[in-house]
Simulated assay, not measured.
Amino acid sequence: MKHFIKTGVIAVLVAFLSFSFTSNTEKKVIKTEESQVVWKGYKVTGSHEGTIAIQSGELHFENAVLTGGAFEIDMTTISSTDLEGEYKGKLDGHLKSDDFFGVAKHPTAQLVFTTVTASGKNAYTVTADLTIKGQTAPVDVNFSVYGNKATATLKVDRTKYGVRYGSASFFDGLKDKTIYDEFDLVVDLVF
């Protein structure tokens, strides 16, 4: 009888400890066809904006709290949405050239979360490693999650990734041809 009670107590203890340390960890795959990345770049005389496609991605949650994530962006899909015809073709081609993102040699970019900190209800401050043109630098991302959707906003300093065309930080005398170093990304995710 002592052996039976001892075995029962051990079984209950093991079950209790297992449940105590078990977390509800989930990886949620991004629905790339329903998700969107919008970019906006600025120059002295105005701005341009467009879209770029997410090739793959996932968000990590533990007990419904965001804990991580990773994305791959298809750089070959970069496209302006504020121009049409010949001017659109010229800008899109220039963005894909070695002057900017060199998509022939670097067809993808990656974003990998390194730290996630809750900053409010459904809101997070994320630090991530962003890799563009084979160069990696950290970026800060404001991230919000609501149900099966998330929104992220970030500013990217293109010069940290070797994208220096038209940058007054590297070239003198550009005047009204100057393109500002930072561009904005607004990401709407569905998972």
Rank of each mutant, 00 (worst) to 15 (best):
F4A: 13
I132D: 05
L189D: 11
S97H: 05
A168G: 10
Q55E: 15
W39P: 10
K121Y: 12
M1S: 15
M1Y: 11
G120T: 09
E86D: 10
N24R: 01
K43E: 06
H48Y: 00
V139Q: 03
K88V: 03
D98K: 07
D157Q: 12
A109S: 15
Y124I: 10
Y180M: 13
H3D: 14
L83E: 01
A168R: 12
I52R: 12
Y124H: 09
S80A: 01
T136K: 14
K177A: 11
S167K: 04
F100R: 03
G120V: 07
F19V: 08
E84F: 01
V190E: 14
W39Y: 09
H60C: 06
F4L: 14
V112S: 15
N148C: 00
V187C: 04
T151P: 02
K31F: 08
I54T: 01
K43W: 10
L66G: 04
G162W: 00
T115M: 12
I52M: 14
G46C: 08
V14M: 03
T81Q: 02
V156S: 05
F21C: 03
K160N: 13
L185S: 10
F21R: 02
T153M: 03
G134K: 04
G102Q: 15
K160G: 00
T77K: 06
G134S: 10
T136N: 08
L95C: 02
A64P: 00
T7M: 11
G46N: 04
S119H: 10
E33L: 11
K31W: 02
S144I: 12
D129A: 15
D184I: 09
S56K: 15
S47L: 01
L17F: 11
F61M: 09
D99A: 13
T32E: 09
A15L: 15
K160V: 04
K31V: 07
Y87D: 11
F113D: 13
L185C: 12
